[in-house]
Computed example of a mutant assay.
Amino acid sequence: MDISFGTHARTQADPTPLRCSRAWDDAAAGIADARDAVATLLARVRPAPPRRAVQDARLVVSELVTNVAKHAPGPCTLSLELLPEAGALRITVSDTSTDTPLRRPPDPRRVGGHGLHLVAMLSRALEVTWLPHGKRVTATVPLTAEQE
């Protein structure tokens, strides 16, 4: 696992965004670590984001990394970036699969398969970018009291 944290803490005088990146050879080993990375990064934000927003961001990163563990062989990378001007956290997960992520319609009778739907519900934006050897999924999660 590779870990990298940005060196700037966000303050009123220093609007430099906080950043964090991690990489795993096996995404399954990184699911809990990804949730912890979000909590650690957001704990450095002042003023602190609402608890609900932190929980939502942790759920989004957990679902994205879990999808990689289930559907994509090989390594996985995570990038987190605080977007102070937007009051949001950008979560980017890259993997080696060229399969299109499928958002299945909600079905309360189905066990599993709700992750991407949850990610879309909790995010302001969700996009997939195709890479030469895989894809990058980016979700922008609001860090405000009222979710959009």
Rank of each mutant, 00 (worst) to 15 (best):
D56I: 02
E148L: 14
V38N: 00
M1S: 15
T98L: 12
V65C: 11
Q12I: 13
E127P: 02
P15V: 06
P108G: 07
V141K: 04
A53R: 00
Q147I: 02
R104D: 09
Q55Y: 00
P106C: 09
P142R: 13
R136T: 05
E85R: 13
A43C: 06
T16D: 06
E148S: 09
V61R: 03
M1F: 11
K135Q: 15
E81W: 03
G112Q: 10
L122R: 10
I3A: 11
L89H: 05
A43S: 15
T16C: 07
S21R: 15
A9M: 12
D26G: 06
S79I: 00
I91E: 03
L131Y: 05
Q147H: 10
V93S: 09
A72G: 13
C76W: 13
D99W: 02
A139H: 05
D99A: 12
D25P: 03
S62A: 14
S97W: 02
V54Q: 03
S62H: 15
R46E: 09
A43Q: 03
F5C: 08
A37L: 08
S21G: 09
A69L: 10
I91N: 05
G115D: 11
D107Y: 06
E127V: 13
L18P: 01
D107W: 02
R22W: 01
N67C: 13
A37P: 02
A32F: 12
R90Q: 15
A28R: 13
G87E: 04
R51P: 01
L83I: 02
G113M: 06
R35L: 10
G74T: 12
P49S: 05
R44Y: 05
R35H: 13
N67V: 10
A13N: 03
H133I: 11
V65Q: 09
L102D: 00
H71N: 12
P75Q: 13
A125D: 15
V38C: 01
L131H: 08
R35D: 10
L116F: 11
A32W: 08
K70Q: 12
H114D: 13
L122N: 04
A9S: 14
A139G: 11
